[in-house]
Amino acid sequence: MIEVNIYNAAFLLFSMITLLSAIGVAVINSLMRSLFLLIISFIGVASLFVLLSADFIAIAQLLIYAGSISILLLFAVMLTPEVSINNQNSKYFLFAALTGILFTYIMFLFISIFDINQLTGLSLDKLNFSNTIDKIGTLLLGKYIIAFELASILLLFALIGAISIVRSNESDFNIVATKIKGKK
């Protein structure tokens, strides 16, 4: 059973903020309003990370999701002007709901393995775990170096894909190609 202490109360508050704004993202028709709620949901997730004493992960969540991915989504919405005003109901509602329920069930199965009272910042404080960023750095450049290098290749592919989307017409492409040939 969940103990009544200030950690669990804070966990309840932040998870409610996260979940309610996430539900709002799915329910609200205006795309911009749902994006705003999405940012609040990201911030809620960041505060949940803080409760787990994972301050570096929390800051990374805030920086990458609330600060950068949200901008990417905003610009993506600006590419579809009609949808942003009145987002129509999707015809795949049933499938989405089924997938959501299934995913929630699987998550519950995972969560029920752990003891929730162990998963707070208190348990890390007992281990004198004061600084997370050093340990992340040592692991990232030692044990998980392959993942670290693969991440850069993933990012490179994302950039090249975006360039090929933006390269608007073929003629423009040809001009540059002839220029490069001419130099050779």
Binding site: L63, I64, G67, S68, I69, I71, L72, L74, F75, A76, M78, L79, A151, S152, L155, A158, L159, A162, I163, I165, V166, S168
Partner: peptide, 16 residues
């Protein structure tokens, strides 16, 4: 779509 490219470049360098 150029705005999208700049935003994507920003995300990539931020992650880096």
């Amino acid at each position: 779509a150029k705005y999208f490219l700049y935003a994507l470049g920003f995300v990539i360098f931020d992650v880096e």
